[in-house]
Structures are given as C-alpha cells and as structure tokens.
Write a protein that binds this DNA or RNA. Structure first.
Length: 890
RNA sequence: GCCGAGGUGGCGGAAUGGCAGACGCAGCGGUCUUAAACACCGCAGGGGGCAACCCCGUGAGGGUUCGAGUCCCUCCCUCGGCACCA
C-alpha cells in the first residue's frame, strides 16, 4: 500500500488506537469504481452528435495498436487528452471523444507465427484486455462510437475507397524492390537485422526482390500538402512535413549517350538539376545503381565491376547511402554522355549517393559547385571546372572545396513553400544574389552573365531545342501500400490472365480475410497458399483468375478512421458526409510526435483525396494538433516487452488510485517532452490529493505537528486573511485556466498544489467558517475536476449532501469565472539592479511614479554602497516598473 | 548523414529579454507518538564568512543588449523521424 493513501488504521482502527483525526481518509479504491459505474449508467460521455444547441468539440486522440496491454505511455497521452475533453464540457461544449483500435498489423502476425494462434484471436483478446484497462482511467470516452479496424465492417470501406482511388487514377501498380528472405518472404525493416542484413527469424541473407505492388499517388497532392493555411499545427511539424515533401524547382535536362564500341549512342539520359546555370561545369554524370539504363550502357569489360557494385548498393540502406561525409564510392560504366550545350563527352558513373527514387535517378555532376560531386571528383581524379565566380575574381584559381553560395542556407524555410537543400544537389538561393554578384565563367556565350539570368536563359535555350525544361521535383514519393501479409485489408483486385488486374465489383465487397490461416512457421504470406481464397472467377470475363494476395498498409486504416467514428455502423458508405461536414475538421488531435510525417501526412492526403471524390467537403483532417512526448522506460529506452522496461499502469492504480496516476503523469514535466519513466515523486501527488480531501472534509481539524496550527499566519488579521484566501483562489483560477488552454499541465498541477498549501495553513481557524473559504474549496474542486475526476466527484457529492442539495455531477458544472477584483494588489516588490546585478529589493505602492521610485531607490543603503563613487550613467525602468537597473559609467 | 526537438540543483522540472531554481521528489532538522510508520512544521544551488554580506552558477566557446537560461553564430551530447513497427 502506498503512503498516505490507504492505511489499515483508516478502516480497522477502534478504541484501542486513536487515529490522529476522526475524519475518514482518502481511499481511491473505495470511490473510483463506484463513480466509473455511475458515469456509465448516466451515459455521461455519450455525445449527442445531433445536438445543435452547444458548440461542437471533436476531441481525437490517436487510437492504439492492441499490442497486449496498456503501458504507462498510453496513459501519458490519454489523461491530459481526457482533461481537455472534461474542461471543454465544463465550458459548455458538446464534446465528442471517441476511441478505437488500430487492429491490423505486423505484431499480430509475429505472435501468430510464433505461437500458432490466429491473429484475429490474439488481437481481439488484446483489445478486450485494453478496454478493461482503459476503464480504470475514468476517462470520458464515448464507447458507442468505437471503431476496430480489423472488423470487416471497417475494412470493407478501405477496399471501397481503394477502388474509388483506382477509378480516379490515384492508385496504380508498379514494380519495386522489397527486402526478401527465401524462407520468410517479404521482410519489414525491423525484421532485417545486423550489418550483414539477415532475416530475424531464420537468419538467411536478405535479398532484394522486384515485385509488382500497389501505390497511391500522394505526389499528386504534393503542392497542396505544402499549404498549411487554416490549420493550427506546431511549427516543427509543419517544417518536418515541408522538408519531407521537399519541393525543388530546377530543370530536367536531356543528355544523350555517346556512340561506343558496344553501343550505338543517341539514347536519352535525363537528369534533374536545381542548377542548370552550372551546366557547362558538368564533368561527369552519375546514375543511380538501379537506373534502368545501367545494364544496357555498361561496356562489356566493365560488366563485372558494375554488377558487383549494383549488388552491393542494394544491400545498403538509404540512410547509409545519403550520409554526406561517407567516403564516396562508385564505378565507371565505360560509356560517355554528351552535354547538350557544348557537345562535351563526359564519363558516366554509377554511385550509390544518387538514388533511383529521387528526380530522374541521374545527375549531371558539377564538382566545382556541389560538395558531394566535389568529393567524388577528388576521389576519382576527375576534372573540376569552375563555372560560377564572384565578378572580377580569377575564374581559374583552383578550388579547395565546392563553391556554394552560403546564402542558400539562410533561405527561409518551413512555414511555406521553399526550395531547400536536396538529397544530392545544394541549391543556390537565386533570390539571394539579386545583385548579380555571381557571374558565369568557362561557360561559352554565358561568360560574364549573372548566374540568375543564366539559370533561366540556359533552360529557355534547351527548351527551344527540345532538350530541357523547367521542372519541379519532390522528395516525397508515391505511397507504397502493398504488403505481402495476411493480417491486413485484402486489396480488392483479381488478376485475370485475359483481363489483367480487374477491380472487384463494389457489390462483392468486402473481400473477406479467410478465418483460418496456416502460417506453417514461416513469415511468408499464407494467402499465397490458400486455394479457397486465391481461386476466383474473373469479374470481367468469368474465366479462372487469381485474387490479389497483397493487403493494404495499416496506415490506410488510420488515414480516415476519425470520419468513421461519426457513423461507425453505416453500411451504405464509408462516411456520413453530412455528419463529417458538421463535425470535422477535428478540433483537437493529440498523439505522438513520431507520427510527424507519415500518419499525419497520409491523413491530410486522404482527406484531400476523399474531398475530390466528393465524400467530404473538408480539405484538412485536424484543425489543431498537439504532439506529446514519449515516455521511455526507466533505462531511457523505448518501452518494450523484450527490454523488460514496461511500466504497468494497473499496478500504480491499485496502489495509488487512478486520479493520482493521472495527476502525476501531468505533473512530471511538459507534455510535449516525455522522458524516462520514474515513479519517484508520485508520493508527492498522492499527498496533494490527501490534502485536498482533508481541506474539503475536515477544515476544522488541527495538525498536532504544527505548533501554529489553528492560528492565523503571523501579522495577518481576519480581514487580511479573507483577502489573502480570495486572492489566492482567483489567482489560481486565472493561472490554471491559462495553463489548461495551453496544455501546460505540470504548472497547472503546481498552481493547484500552491493553492492547497495556502488553504491548508488556514485549517482550524475561523476563516474556514467564512464564504471566502467555501468559495475556495468549491473552485479548487472545479479546477481539479478535469484532471482528477473521481476524487472531485466524491467530494462534490458530499458537499452537496452536506447542504441538502440534490446531486449533480461535478463534470456537468460550469467552469468558474475569475473575479479580477480579488486579484488586485496594493503593493509590489521591485528588484533593483546595479549594472545588471541584483543588489536590493523594495516594496512600493502599485501606482508609484518613476520619479518617486527612483528617489527611494537612490536612498537605499545597499544601492548607495553598490554605486560607490562611480557615476550613474542612466537608470532604466524596465517592463513598466517591474525592475530598476542603475547603469554606471566607467 | 539529413530533418525536427532538447540540454537549468542530488532528481523531475519553473522562469512574456528583467529577482534563476516556482511546484514536487530525495535529503537534513523539528513536532506528534512509549517507539516507529504516517501526517504536519521548517531548512536547503555551489563556495566563502560568526554575521551583514560577497563570489561563482542554466552543455562548451564567442556575440548582441543597460540586462541573456531566454536572441544570434560555432561546437559537443541526448531523444524522435528517415518511407514495410505503429
């Protein structure tokens, strides 16, 4: 049992041992389940979505993956979120606070393979556990709106949406590589282990395999996704999304291949560059190892080297490949390209720092003006030709590093569209050189022309010859949604030998996952072996065909689930458009910052795509977003069962009660920060709630440990004490309200502690008989109600009972109003600095003039001493008289 | 490596460019108790001094300012993300 919370003597004490106070002690286990049951009975948290009489407030928190049981991290997001909902209810809003489960995903399959249990059984059992755990939190979830994504009534609409996307050209199929294990099939990133990249299950060497897979065309919305107007999202998230999308303006330039013994030449090689003005400085070309023309262009005597390099590149992660300070590697393929502006023959290399997924998968290398190209050229002894130089400098002075305009780094970023540093080319911010400081050199007809003019001029010339055009490229790629797995939404397509990929007709949805599944101890998709699932008649020609066995990425599920909460049972469409129009965008979304780019960008994409399909009118899913931090294990690592660092909330609830756990999580630190879990300090919060209990139920009691107990604080008469109590109460109300609005829970709790400490000092005095005290207790309970719903409900009900008033839940009371008059002060303390160092403090009347204040300041002994014989240069009255600083000369 | 966030007492943290360390935890002293636990009251950044008081102090180094934890530059460290974990 925890300190101060439940002790045996509160329940068993009798005449043998006199407890300190006859008042009942705070025992959360006796009150929390009682109120949870009562709230359910009253359906206190079931929103009436048709209620037009109050402002709507859609409060959404990221739904959870049912991984087994809740850990303290789940509570860390949910308790403040619940406090937001409760606060808004008290503000008079119609709050909709739904919850659900993100039920498809890899862990269920891993468990299934390992333990030979059906993923559905595993998942549903976990959901049952987590539901019951969630109840102990006493949160205001509306369970009538629950969504579970592995239910056919949900995933059928994933399929339906996929078919609409297909119709509108937003879904397509293309070949792309996956990590592949010969025994276990496609592997997720987390299933590839070690530097040698082996399969986590069988240890086999992981290969790349090319598979035809389904994509969603997120890039169609790239520009619109850069526009954050109308939503109130944290700047860091907007910056991360903007950089993730990575819009770059540049040019596509067509080089051609030079004739060689093994190749007739004349093939087009397109490159994307943000620096067409440096075209004359291209001294070699680099293709990504996976570029489609590599095999064709490679000279016979280079084949062995090139193939070995391509194979090695496939083994590396993109993160490795893009590391800028890594030693540059690459191999020549024994072919040349021809520069369209000057006919120069330049050698073609492949190198892994060029990615097949960005731009055209090929770059023109300009070592004089790009750091990576410079490093590569230096390693391989390739020529470096300077083509940009400050006006009147020597153009042929050798470079010791790439000459890149540093002003590019100062380009504004993040809040809107921008062109920033790219994966492979550093962009000069053309706007930064509007003065024409930089000119072209070694560039034929362009010598002496400002780089800014050449940038556009060279592109225009190329365009005229059909050899180039201005182009925009994004770092953002289309969304690969195919997963070679069982436990997901089956992609509703049939492959027919005659008709190709045929969509499943809408009336045949849902394509159900087979109930029985046999993994045979392998990770390979069991749908591939399930004849009953596989064999199907072609919807178009009726001939024998084969079902698509890929399932959809679970991020599809989470890309529209908040729409579904509004009509979870709807069976003639995915969403109730009218309801969606009324209730979205979501007013407040809360969840982890680890979703900054993927889930939060996919959700925005889906909303825009669904708008264009005519399903919803909104363009953005979430009006306001907050990303809380992550609670790590006590060891500072992410909580996971395998590390054994998971903190179970049930244990804490059993010991301290849900209210204490909720409040402690809020008190730990700033909500967006998170940090390692440590239970040290939870006792302080428990003590705080015990004090609140005592203040509310036993105000007349005295503390034998405090000799001054029952007396007013020294120097305070009754009138002063009344003012003091009232001022403390209303100041707390003002600050707590602001802190809740700003989600500053830790300081909110601190201010409630401060108020309770103040009130505690008046226990046993006559003050507790007065209206000021009564108001203080009332406001303290109301302020605490959103965060600690059970204890406040209990104390509220006893308060009403004591007055003979009928019971009404504290959670339907109105949030109180601050009385500004109570807070006004007569005097204030002014710190006095000499040369910025604190030397004295004085207390002065609030309305004092600067002249009067200065007179008092200058007469103070400490000030006089600090000034000595120095000369006062000036006196600064800062912040409207908040501080005085005396500046000395010499 | 790139993008984003952060670094303040023994610990969690507080501080619209204006008194660094609110509020807690741990610690120390005390009250209550036969005693202990609980509870309560008080002390408490580091160094020096009997004291008044003085000096130092917000990852490191520079800068802007009357004044910097806060703004700017360089660097170091930690955390999140990097497209098949969710």
């Amino acid at each position: 049992m925890g300190p101060a919370v439940t002790t045996s003597d509160s329940t068993t004490s009798d005449g043998a041992r006199e407890p300190r106070s006859r008042a009942e002690r705070y025992d959360p286990s006796a009150i929390e389940p009682k109120w949870q049951a009562r709230w359910d009975e009253l359906r206190l948290y079931e929103a009436d979505l048709d209620d037009e009489s109050r402002p709507r407030f859609y409060l959404l928190t990221m739904y959870d993956y049912p991984s087994g049981s809740l850990h303290i991290g789940h509570w860390y997001v949910k308790t403040p979120t619940d406090a937001i909902g409760r606060y808004h209810r008290m503000r008079g809003d119609n709050v909709f606070q739904p919850i659900g489960f993100d039920a498809f995903g890899l862990p269920a399959e891993n468990a299934a393979i390992k333990n030979r249990i059906n993923p559905r059984d595993w998942t549903m059992a976990n959901i049952a556990t987590m539901r019951s755990q969630l109840r102990t939190m006493g949160a205001g979830w509306d369970w009538t709106a629950e969504v579970v994504t592995c239910d056919p009534s949900y995933y059928r609409w994933n399929q339906w949406l996929f078919l609409r996307f297909l119709e509108h050209g937003l879904a397509y199929r293309a070949v792309s590589p996956v990590d592949w294990c010969p025994n276990d099939g496609t592997l997720a990133r987390e299933q590839v282990e070690g530097a040698d990249r082996h399969c986590w299950r069988c240890g086999a060497k992981v290969e790349k395999r090319e598979l035809a897979q389904w994509y969603l065309r997120t890039t169609r919305y790239a520009d619109e996704l850069l526009d954050f107007s109308g939503i109130d999202w944290p700047e860091p998230i907007r910056i991360q999304q903007t950089n993730w999308i990575g819009r770059s303006t540049g040019a596509e330039i067509v080089f051609s291949t030079a004739p060689a013994a093994h190749h007739p030449g004349g093939s087009e090689l397109r490159v994307f560059t943000t620096r067409p003005d440096t075209l004359y400085g291209a001294t070699f070309m680099v293709l990504a190892p996976e570029h489609p023309l590599v095999a064709e262009l490679t000279a016979p005597d280079r084949t062995a080297d090139v193939e070995a390099y391509v194979k090695a590149a496939a083994d590396k992660t993109e993160i490795d490949r893009l590391s800028a300070d890594r030693e540059k590697t690459g191999v020549p393929i024994g072919a040349d390209a021809i520069n369209p502006v000057n006919g120069a023959r330049i050698p073609i290399f492949i190198a892994d720092y060029v990615l097949g997924t960005y731009g055209t998968g090929a770059i023109m290398a300009v070592p004089a003006h790009d750091e990576r190209d410079f490093a590569f050229a230096t390693t391989f002894g390739l020529p470096i030709v300077r083509v940009i130089a400050p006006r009147d400098s020597d153009p042929d002075e050798p470079l010791t590093e790439a000459f890149v305009d540093k002003a590019a780094d100062e380009a504004p970023r993040g809040t809107g569209r921008h062109d920033g540093p790219l994966g492979d080319i550093e962009l000069i911010n053309m706007g930064s050189d509007s003065a024409g400081r930089l000119v072209l050199v070694n560039s034929g007809p362009w010598d002496g022309k400002p780089a800014v003019d050449a940038w556009h001029g060279i592109v225009a010339d190329l365009a005229e010859r059909g050899l180039g055009r201005q182009a925009v490229t994004y770092r953002l790629r289309d969304w690969l949604v195919s997963r070679q797995r069982y436990w997901g939404t089956p992609i509703p397509v049939v492959h027919c030998p005659i008709d190709g990929a045929v969509p499943v007709p809408e009336e045949d949805l849902p394509v159900l996952l087979p109930d029985t599944v046999d993994y045979r101890g392998s990770g390979e998709n069991p749908l591939n072996r399930d004849d009953a699932f596989l064999n199907v008649a072609c919807p178009r020609c009726g001939g024998p065909a084969r079902r698509e066995t890929d399932t959809l990425d679970t991020f599809i599920d989470s890309s529209w689930y908040w729409f579904r909460y509004l009509s979870p049972g709807k069976d003639d469409g995915p969403v109730d458009s009218e309801m969606v129009h009324r209730w979205t965008p979501v007013n407040q979304y809360t969840g982890g910052a680890e979703h900054a780019v993927m889930h939060l960008l996919y959700s925005r994409f889906f909303t825009k795509a669904m708008r264009d399909l005519g399903l919803v009118d909104e363009s953005e899913p979430f009006r306001r977003l907050f990303n809380q931090g992550q609670i790590l294990g006590a060891d500072g690592e992410r909580m996971s069962k395998s590390r054994g660092n998971v903190q179970d909330p049930d244990e804490l609830v059993a010991r301290y009660g849900a209210d204490t756990v909720r409040l402690y999580l809020m008190f730990m630190g700033p909500w967006d920060q998170g940090g390692p879990w440590s239970p040290t300090g939870i006792g302080g919060v428990a003590r705080f709630l015990s004090r609140v209990w005592t203040i509310a139920l036993d105000p007349a009691g005295r503390e034998p440990g405090d000799p001054a107990s029952g007396e007013l604080p020294e120097g305070e008469d009754e009138a002063a004490a009344r003012d003091h109590v009232r001022a403390a109460t209303h100041r707390a109300l003002r600050d707590v309200t602001e802190d809740i609005e700003g989600f500053r829970w830790n300081t909110m709790v601190a201010k409630l502690m401060e108020l309770s400490n103040t009130l505690f000092r008046y226990r046993g005095t006559a003050i507790t008989e007065l209206p000021e005290w009564d108001e203080a207790v009332r406001l303290l309970l109301l302020m605490l109600a959103p965060s600690a719903p059970h204890i406040t409900e209990e104390l509220w009900s006893r308060r009403l009972a004591a007055r003979g008033e009928p019971w009404e839940s504290i959670h339907v009371q109105r949030w109180p109003e601050v009385d500004e008059r109570a807070i006004v002060e007569q005097t204030r303390e002014v710190p006095i600095q000499v040369n910025g160092k604190l030397r004295d403090r004085i207390t002065v009347p609030v309305g004092i003039s600067e002249i009067e204040l200065e007179q008092i300041v200058m007469s103070r002994d400490k000030v006089v001493a600090a000034i000595g014989d120095a000369h006062v240069a000036r006196v600064i009255h800062a912040g409207g008289g908040r501080l005085v600083n005396i500046v000395l000369r010499g």
